Amino acid sequence: MDRTELLLEQYGLEPMRQHRDILKELLRSESLNEEREDNEYLKTLCILVYTYGIAEDTLQIWKAKNINFDTGCYIDGELLIGAGLEETISYLRTLKTAEAENELDYLKKLKTIGRDKVLEFYRSYYGLS
């Protein structure tokens, strides 16, 4: 069993609220891991943090998405808007930072499919349906 499978076994696709800090720390740590063999574990951490639906988490996922070209392709833009597109945009506008502006520019071009379809897709992707 690999790290991604262990992560999903331990927390599930929609982890309980009390695990948020742990998962955010795992995401932070993995984002800094220059030795990572692939991006599956990183993407899965982004998905789990996304499920909380908290706008403040968007920048952490944005940072992971922008580590390099591969993570930019591998981590779906939809994962940036766990709180919803409008709420995320409103949150980012309050920050007035270059990073928030860059993400706002990206979100303006994002075509969304909605939370239910995102979760349905990942349940299928991980064989959890």
Score class of each variant (00 low, 15 high):
64 A>D: 06
101 E>Q: 15
8 L>W: 10
28 R>P: 00
33 N>W: 05
84 G>I: 08
9 E>R: 15
43 K>Y: 01
34 E>N: 14
46 C>N: 05
60 Q>D: 14
92 L>N: 05
73 C>D: 12
45 L>N: 10
126 Y>F: 15
6 L>C: 06
8 L>Q: 07
113 I>Y: 14
5 E>K: 13
119 L>Q: 11
52 Y>Q: 04
55 A>V: 15
50 Y>N: 14
72 G>L: 05
23 L>Q: 04
34 E>G: 12
48 L>R: 07
54 I>G: 01
106 Y>H: 15
109 K>R: 14
45 L>M: 03
22 I>Y: 04
87 E>R: 06
84 G>S: 09
124 S>I: 06
93 R>Q: 08
126 Y>K: 06
68 N>T: 01
123 R>W: 10
38 D>N: 12
15 P>K: 02
31 S>A: 11
6 L>Y: 05
38 D>V: 07
111 K>L: 13
82 G>C: 03
119 L>V: 15
40 E>Q: 14
17 R>T: 09
16 M>D: 15
11 Y>A: 04
94 T>A: 02
12 G>A: 11
72 G>K: 05
37 E>C: 08
4 T>M: 10
44 T>W: 04
101 E>F: 06
94 T>Y: 02
84 G>E: 08
124 S>F: 12
99 E>C: 04
39 N>G: 14
58 T>V: 15
128 L>D: 09
127 G>L: 03
95 L>M: 11
25 E>G: 03
70 D>C: 08
37 E>V: 09
24 K>F: 08
2 D>R: 06
8 L>N: 12
25 E>N: 12
53 G>H: 14
71 T>P: 02
40 E>I: 14
72 G>V: 00
54 I>N: 14
103 E>D: 01
107 L>P: 15
86 E>D: 15
71 T>M: 08
124 S>Q: 13
4 T>L: 13
107 L>H: 07
59 L>M: 13
48 L>P: 01
68 N>A: 10
109 K>F: 10
106 Y>Q: 09
105 D>V: 01
38 D>R: 06
37 E>H: 10
57 D>R: 05
31 S>Y: 03
113 I>M: 15
115 R>H: 12
122 Y>T: 09
25 E>Y: 11
125 Y>L: 06
